[in-house]
Amino acid sequence: MSAYAQPHPRFSVLSSSSLSSAELLSPTNSSGRFSLPSAPSVTTTTGTPKPLSRPNIYDRPLNKTRTAEVSAASFAFLFSEVVQYMQKRVSGINDLERRLNTLGYRLGTRVLELMIWRSEFASKTPKREIRFLPALMSIHTNVWRAVFGKPADAIEKSVENEDEYMIIDNDPVVTRNISIPRDMSQLSCSSFTAGIVEAVLDGLGFPARVTAHNTPNETFPQRTTILIKLEKSVLEREELFK
């Protein structure tokens, strides 16, 4: 029981970092952010920030990735609640997957913006991926690493349909603790991840429909395939590049 009495080490890290960031946070800057003519009261209240108040999340440096990690356990609980909340409000598995996809899409648009900023802001010759395969590779490696902390496990191209590509994750972080009941075996909560991929592809100019499917095998019971079905226009453009 003594283990519960002592506070988690992370709390002390948080409080010490809040102090150091509070020093960085210049009061003139933060009040300038709120100097809207329609909201004068806001300016007066934030004009004198308390020295011990928590740092504004928007004022943290964007390209610091090491300390920006969040607790996987907290995320697991949050995601669990998200799924439970949605489950009460949907009519079926397809509807639930669509909603998870939409939620992931909202995240994906931000992930893309952040990643491009992180990789290109210091570059003298900023570039943008315009071919599909390098873009897919960058999703497999960079997006996965930024969001899940590890690259995905494989990329495959469909043999039957030339417009289909697959990203395979043997042990997806998002669904690591989720056991799908038998009567819902079609459901893949990785639809959330599919939404992220769809948003990134959309943002890069490769419109596609992205879905998630459970493809377990002996060693990896949680193995998941993210299936990307590209729009015709993308394939036609790829042809022109050749």
């Binding site: 697991a76 609980f77 669990s80 998200v82 989720i178 056991s179 009941p181 819902m184």
Partner: peptide, 16 residues
């Protein structure tokens, strides 16, 4: 506890 398909205080039928 992190499985959205488990109802707290109910019998545990979680494969994981």
């Amino acid at each position: 506890m992190k499985n959205p398909f488990h109802t707290p205080e109910m019998p545990i039928r979680t494969e994981g």
